[in-house]
Amino acid sequence: MIIVVALAALFGLAVGSFLNVVVWRVPRGESVVSPPSACPRCGHRIRARHNVPVVGWLVLRGRCHDCGEPIARRYPLVEAATGVAFGLVTWLAGVSWELPALLYLAAISIALALIDLDCRRLPDAVVLPSYAVGSGLLALAAWNPGGEPEWAALLRAGIGGFVLLSVYFLLLVVYPGGMGFGDVKLAGVLGIYLGYAGWAALVVGWFSAFLLGGLYALVLMVAGRAGRRTSVPFGPWMLAGAWAGLLVGDVVGRWYVSLL
Results as ranks from 00 to 15, higher is better:
8 A>K: 13
8 A>T: 05
10 L>C: 09
14 A>Y: 06
17 S>C: 09
18 F>C: 08
20 N>C: 11
26 V>M: 06
26 V>H: 14
27 P>N: 11
35 P>S: 07
36 P>I: 01
38 A>D: 03
39 C>H: 06
39 C>F: 11
41 R>W: 01
45 R>N: 05
48 A>N: 02
52 V>Q: 01
53 P>G: 06
54 V>D: 07
56 G>M: 08
56 G>H: 10
58 L>R: 02
59 V>T: 09
63 R>E: 13
67 C>S: 08
71 I>D: 14
74 R>H: 15
75 Y>H: 13
75 Y>D: 10
79 E>L: 11
95 V>C: 05
97 W>Q: 12
98 E>H: 14
107 A>G: 10
107 A>T: 00
107 A>N: 03
113 A>T: 14
116 D>P: 12
116 D>T: 08
121 R>C: 00
122 L>R: 02
124 D>R: 15
125 A>W: 04
127 V>H: 11
128 L>Y: 15
130 S>K: 03
132 A>L: 15
132 A>Q: 00
133 V>G: 01
137 L>P: 03
139 A>C: 12
140 L>H: 12
141 A>F: 12
146 G>M: 09
149 P>S: 08
151 W>V: 05
152 A>T: 10
155 L>S: 07
156 R>I: 01
157 A>I: 08
157 A>P: 05
158 G>M: 09
158 G>I: 07
158 G>Y: 13
163 V>C: 10
164 L>S: 00
167 V>C: 13
168 Y>W: 15
169 F>I: 00
170 L>V: 15
173 V>D: 02
175 Y>N: 06
177 G>C: 04
180 G>K: 08
180 G>P: 10
182 G>P: 08
183 D>R: 04
183 D>V: 06
185 K>N: 03
188 G>T: 03
188 G>W: 08
189 V>A: 06
190 L>M: 12
194 L>R: 08
201 A>D: 05
202 L>E: 06
209 A>F: 12
212 L>K: 05
217 A>V: 07
218 L>K: 03
218 L>P: 02
220 L>N: 10
221 M>Q: 14
226 A>E: 04
226 A>D: 09
227 G>M: 11
229 R>C: 00
240 A>K: 00
241 G>W: 10
246 L>F: 10
246 L>Q: 06
248 V>L: 13
249 G>L: 04
